[in-house]
Write a protein that binds this DNA or RNA. Structure first.
Lengths: 107, 107
DNA sequence: TGTCTATTTGGCAAAATAGACAAATAGCTT
DNA sequence: AAGCTATTTGTCTATTTTGCCAAATAGACA
């Protein structure tokens, strides 16, 4: 793969990799409902607050979400809601996988 | 996050994680043009054949591609072409990131 | 200023991932 | 069977990611 292409695909992979974690996927899905502060997320995710903050930081670093300060809390929101489209395709993949598993068991 | 939800999001993350690598993204993009054997991919990617095979295996394991045998070679093709839709969104994210970088440099 | 709440960051250990080489496997072809 | 090509798998090392605790930072408010 030529260096130019490699760089391009690495940039793209960085964004997708940010989505490639159960907690972060959940966060993105939650943010579809509206902006939320770190403490809201912490309550829903149930991990250490520092862990939650790091996950949100990864999403922000990737450009998927943005944050703004409000008083002493930080509020996150979806910067690129198009990532929600990932879910449709992912569900299609998972459904096909389930069908194949059934067929394998039958055969 | 309740265990049921956690499992769901981990399944989803598994699929997305398979896409979260420059080489594998490149492979998916190449497969848009049509099915290809491992040796074709190897020539394009330029890594060790075992590495290429492993990457394709990860995509297959995730249900994104399928493979079939033809003589002594294995031919891979897209099982769920909907993953190609990821690229549109990812480009949107990257473009927004570039705009922000420019604004930061100006301010 | 001191204190409280919210969030981020440093640092560490465990786990997962990536990539290479060598060896094993599978299917031609002679 | 022997030799050849294509692919996969075992194993190892290096790197990255994850998640927690503790400490640092930022803002609100008495």
């Amino acid at each position: 793969m030529e260096p130019q292409w490699k760089d391009l695909y690495e940039d793209r992979a960085r964004v997708i990799k940010a989505m490639g974690h159960a907690t972060r996927l959940f966060m993105v899905h939650e943010l579809e409902k509206g902006e939320q502060c770190v403490c809201d997320m912490q309550a829903k995710v149930g991990a250490d607050i520092s862990t939650v903050s790091r996950h949100l930081g990864i999403l922000r670093e990737a450009g998927i979400v943005t944050s703004r300060k409000q008083g002493n809390q930080v509020i996150y929101s979806l910067q690129c809601p198009c990532v929600l489209n990932f879910f449709n395709c992912v569900e299609t993949v998972l459904q096909k996988n389930r069908q194949h598993t059934i067929h394998e068991l039958r055969s």
